[in-house]
């Protein structure tokens, strides 16, 4: 089937719900309205109000109730309308979803998949463009995934709905409808914790994920440089093996993400390479990211987001070193 990321996730949710009646969806405007991005379109009609719930406007309530449902044998898939509003339920996620299993030495796992749109570039109001993957990964206890293609989105979602863990499923709004792919009609899974080498190369390694993936691919193609491109897909746990193998092979690494530079995923990836492969590098690792400041209002976002020129210069820098 031809699918963009919206229809791919919608399809995954439907298949998941058909195969497991413990899966329920809840969130603001996900039912009748089909979600503000239409990801849950049609699911209310197909599964009814008991399994697709339009909730009151309360993020802590949505996430806390989901934790409770998971503890009592359901497998909730809550939606938080935008990642910027997930912070209102941050405590439920990091204090409870992330911790219940270890708090009870695995007597109480918390199987749930928290879906939320992330990242910017769509010229909208404050708190609609955050890239919060590092916050959720830092804790330990939460699995964090972020697809950049419809194929991966469907496969990762189907996998996430089968795991006995809390998964934070980040959906880059910019990529929701950016392009279509031909994907299998039936259920399939994409492994969580496994990065994807989207291009084999020898000259350098470019590690990225989410909104930056299409730009990275484009820059590499335009420059004609023999880069190996890695799409992390899962932020936590990191696929360190794939990262290290590539870094050792090429000896040059650029890490690209939309989230701001300081204390981000790039720092984690760079640190692991530095710890375990520094003597095999030919150049210092370079990170490309948004500046270390809050996501600006839309008039300024073009000065904030990493663009092709910034990525291109970074590649030149590691190649010339």
């Amino acid at each position: 089937m031809q699918a963009n990321m919206v229809t791919a996730i919608n399809n995954a949710l439907e298949l998941g719900m058909r195969s497991d009646e413990n899966i329920v969806l809840l969130g603001e405007d996900i039912g009748k309205d089909g979600g503000v991005f239409r990801v849950t379109e049609g699911l209310l009609d197909k599964f009814g109000e008991q399994r697709v719930m339009d909730t009151p406007l309360a993020e802590s309530g949505i996430l806390g109730a989901s934790v409770g449902m998971a503890l009592a044998g359901l497998h909730p898939v809550p939606e938080i309308q935008f990642a910027g509003f997930m912070f209102l339920g941050f405590g439920q996620l990091v204090n409870h979803a992330a911790r219940y299993r270890s708090r009870t030495r695995s007597s109480f796992p918390v199987p749930m998949v928290v879906r939320t749109p992330v990242s910017g570039g769509i010229r909208t109001l404050e708190h609609h463009s955050e890239s919060p993957e590092a916050y959720y990964s830092h804790m330990g206890g939460l699995i964090v995934v972020e697809p950049s293609t419809p194929y991966d989105a469907k496969g990762l979602m189907l996998r996430a709905m089968k795991m006995n863990d809390p998964v934070v499923f980040l959906e880059p709004t910019k990529l929701y409808r950016l392009f279509k792919q031909d994907i299998p009609e039936d259920a399939y899974e994409v492994e969580i914790g496994k990065a994807d080498i989207t291009r084999k190369g020898e000259a350098l390694t470019v590690i990225s994920y989410g909104t930056m993936m299409p730009i990275v691919k484009d820059v590499v193609a335009k420059k004609g440089v023999d880069a190996e491109i890695i799409d992390l897909r899962t932020i936590n746990p990191l696929d360190e093996k794939t990262i290290l193998e590539s870094a050792k092979k090429t000896g040059r690494v650029v890490i690209v993400h939309e989230a701001s530079l300081s204390f981000g995923v790039g720092a984690e990836v760079a640190a692991r390479i530095a710890e375990k492969a520094i003597f095999e590098l030919d150049a210092p690792i370079v990170r490309v990211a948004s500046p270390s400041l809050p996501y600006p209002f839309p008039g300024y976002e073009k000065y904030y987001l990493p663009n092709a020129m910034k990525i291109s210069q970074a590649i030149d820098r590691v190649m010339e070193a």
């Binding site: 300081s262 270390s292 073009k302 000065y303 663009n307 910034k310």
Partner: peptide
Amino acid sequence: IFTNVYSFVPQTLQDELDDAEKNNFWQEGG
């Protein structure tokens, strides 16, 4: 957007600002 984050501009942030200006990251207009 860089100068209104804190009551002062930390050196690391100033470096990011200088980098953007020097390397013309804004030239493409996003």
